[in-house]
Design a protein around this nucleic acid. Structure first.
Lengths: 240, 240
DNA sequence: CGACGCGTTGACGGAACTCAACGTAGGTGG
DNA sequence: CCACCTACGTTGAGTTCCGTCAACGCGTCG
């Protein structure tokens, strides 16, 4: 809950890893100091829930490090992951009453949290920040709509292939030891169940599709969490 | 293409049907005049395409009257409807290069169009408009994410029931002869194929689900395009 | 009247789900 | 250190739901 006592009034923002990519990118030093004063850094452990669906929207946050999932569930308890939040992504529902989805960390994560009311006020007073938030929200809406095509119209093979390509692209920058990325090896931050929840499938179907692609020499699966893309073209064909 | 010659320089905005609900709601008369000067009213016929997926994002628009669909398709040509645009909704991709989805009118529609570059400039100079656009985009993102749960985790019966309830709610205000709405009668602005494209189903499955619900006395189908909700509770049970 | 578009219904097959057993990796304690 | 346990993942068998293909009904328009 509390910020580290060793740096009580430090301006975290200036040294922030996502300083140039997050919604605060266009703020000048004075504005940044003001934003810093209403925000708090917080570590979230893997598996820890940061926001609960349906709660009053008290908190919003910026992702600094790590990967988190946004999810919701049916009345019967079947889960659907609505999206993944990477560093510099924004979490929570500004200008809203209720948190519309749950947020849970998939890896150890570092987030920069704000009381929603503080953030709303700050945003309204700083159009450049609000503009950044708008651009980010528009991009997220585009991404979400593209995912609807996957959920509504793709079969299991297409879903899994599309997922692997997307993860390879999005994970590349972080693991960007260049050769590692081009070799197509990656460590999945999601369990099979979570992959299934992203794709609207069952765990067994995901497992079968992965095994099938391995037997067809399109991918390799050195361990549970590792995937190697052996034949990117083959994956792309399957994602069509 | 052209505005009506009978009202060459009139300020459409002042008498606009969505004046108090669309993103222009917070503008003062002077700002409204400025916005009016860069916008054009345009009629779109039912079935006419307003924006094409993948085109350069030249135009953005506000819906004044009518209903339009946003859609995309797979490489194989299977369509997925991403959302419906009602009066006061915003269309197109501000601050973006490409139009990320196609837009086609389902009913005769009236839209207020802007050159995207003009609109972008105006928005950046008028934070109140940009704020409205942000609120609208955030709400649309919430709505879109809720639809992902339907696409990914619901069976055909749940999808159709959810769709009927949603349409009844959203169509009510316009047809709001009060008693009409409460009787649960509505005229669907979508064909069976379009309903299927919204729900990620086939036309036959939609038809079968509707017939089944009629046989169970949950709804009635007086004609192709009409639906009467006979037992709202029954529908709600099925949408769970 | 016939043709066409749209919707309904039926028969069938297959893709994905369900249920169940088994395998495997990682962590714990004796 | 190894046996054990547990969580996670894989694989198999059977079932179900929905998609596909096809025939038919109905209203509309030329």
């Amino acid at each position: 809950m509390d910020i580290s006592p060793s740096e009580p009034t430090l301006n975290f923002c200036q040294a922030c890893a996502v300083r140039n990519r997050a919604i605060c990118a266009d703020l000048d030093p004075g504005e940044l100091q003001a934003l810093n004063s209403i925000g708090r850094r917080r570590k979230v452990e893997a598996g820890e829930q940061l926001l609960w669906e349906g709660d009053d929207a008290i908190v919003v946050a910026n992702v600094v490090e790590g990967l988190l999932k946004l999810s919701t569930q049916t009345a019967e308890g079947k889960e659907q992951i609505l999206g993944l939040a990477y560093p510099s992504d924004f979490l929570g529902r500004p200008f809203g009453e209720k948190t519309p989805y749950g947020v849970e960390a998939l890896t150890p994560a570092l987030v920069c949290t704000f009381q929603r009311t503080d953030f709303d006020r700050f945003a309204r007073e700083h159009p450049r920040l609000e503009h950044k938030l708008l651009e980010r929200t528009l991009a997220e809406l585009d991404r979400t709509r593209r995912w609807m095509l996957l959920l509504g119209r793709m079969n299991a093979e297409q879903k899994v292939a599309t997922f692997l390509l997307e993860m390879a692209d999005r994970l590349a920058p972080s693991t960007c030891g260049a050769d590692v990325g081009s070799l197509g090896q990656m460590e999945l931050p999601l369990s099979r169940q979570q992959i299934a929840d992203v794709l609207g499938l069952t765990i067994e179907t995901v497992s079968r599709q992965l095994s099938k692609m391995r037997s067809e020499n399109v991918i390799d699966l050195p361990s549970r969490r590792e995937v190697v893309i052996v034949d990117r073209g083959g994956l792309e064909d399957r994602s069509a």
